[in-house]
Simulated scan of single mutants.
Amino acid sequence: MDQARYGLTLFITGLTPRSVRAVANTRAFCESELDSYDLEIVDLYEHPERAQPANVVVSPTLVRYRPIPVRLLFGDMSNQQQLASLIVE
């Protein structure tokens, strides 16, 4: 879509079906639509301290921190149109 390098963090809670779908949907979108990106998966069960600084209150949450401005999307990332609008504006 764009030549920018995207910075993304996906916050999940364990291996729940919703978290697994969010990871799969996010990875599939990034692989098919983005030329250059960094995707970090953070399990809040393992790293609960990461939620507050990122303003994460529900899971799964995808945070696009690069390019600025920071954007958040909640859910299992199955809506590709919402995902595209969050990531590439």
Rank of each mutant, 00 (worst) to 15 (best):
R5N: 09
G7N: 07
T9E: 10
L10I: 03
F11P: 00
F11K: 02
F11A: 01
T13G: 10
L15G: 15
T16Q: 06
T16W: 05
P17L: 02
R18F: 05
A22N: 07
A22Q: 03
A24S: 09
A24P: 07
N25D: 05
R27A: 06
A28R: 12
A28E: 11
F29I: 09
C30R: 02
E31I: 01
E33S: 11
E33H: 11
L34Y: 09
S36V: 00
Y37S: 07
D38P: 02
D38C: 03
L39V: 05
V42M: 05
H47E: 11
P48Q: 02
P48A: 06
E49G: 11
R50S: 14
R50G: 07
Q52E: 15
Q52A: 10
A54N: 08
N55E: 15
V57K: 04
V58N: 13
V58M: 14
V58F: 15
S59G: 08
V63Q: 01
V63C: 01
R64K: 14
R64T: 11
I68P: 11
I68H: 13
I68M: 13
V70F: 07
L72E: 10
L73I: 13
L73Q: 10
F74V: 06
G75E: 09
D76E: 08
M77F: 08
M77T: 04
Q80P: 03
L83S: 03
L83N: 01
L83F: 09
S85Y: 12
V88E: 14
V88M: 13
V88D: 10
